[in-house]
Amino acid sequence: MNMSRHHISVTVNGNKREADVDSRTLLVHFIRETLGLTGTHIGCDTSNCGACTVILDGKAVKSCTILAVQAEGKEMLTVEGLAKDGKLHPVQEGFWEKHGLQCGFCTPGMLMTSYWLLQKNPNPTEEEIRRGISGNLCRCTGYVKIVEAVQYAAQKMRQPEAPVPAR
């Protein structure tokens, strides 16, 4: 178990962050423990649940399945980076408005996957939303309200109105 150390530099939510990590350190542990961004969660150990989803170089990835060293030089967006200037992102608004969360544990991953889905497909059908979030498990909502939340966000992003304050 001789572990080599690596110096990595990652742009996280617009800020450059640097750290030394073990070669085996998972990206999710780097995010949560090194960077202290605990919004990204760990819900399983088989890459099924998606609670750890973040955006890495524009793509939604499960950060439990990527090594921290693989993020070297990349840009990363976590749930903490969604709201801007005290204003919620439309996907955050949608989840709040439509009761798209209950315990909140899957929520950061769901938000990031929804964010990515709407980047790729700004006007998804219900079927496309359901397929799009199928790599993220939620045990509380039964998904209907999450689908409605994503539809709300899609609508909002196509027709921007005054964003909702974060508090």
Partner: peptide
């Protein structure tokens, strides 16, 4: 009404056991 607890959850500021350091 919308839930009072949601702003922290949708912004990654929930405080679950594993978040305690």
């Amino acid at each position: 009404i919308k839930r009072k607890e949601d702003p922290r959850f949708i912004q990654g500021h929930g405080n679950y056991v594993d978040d305690i350091k």
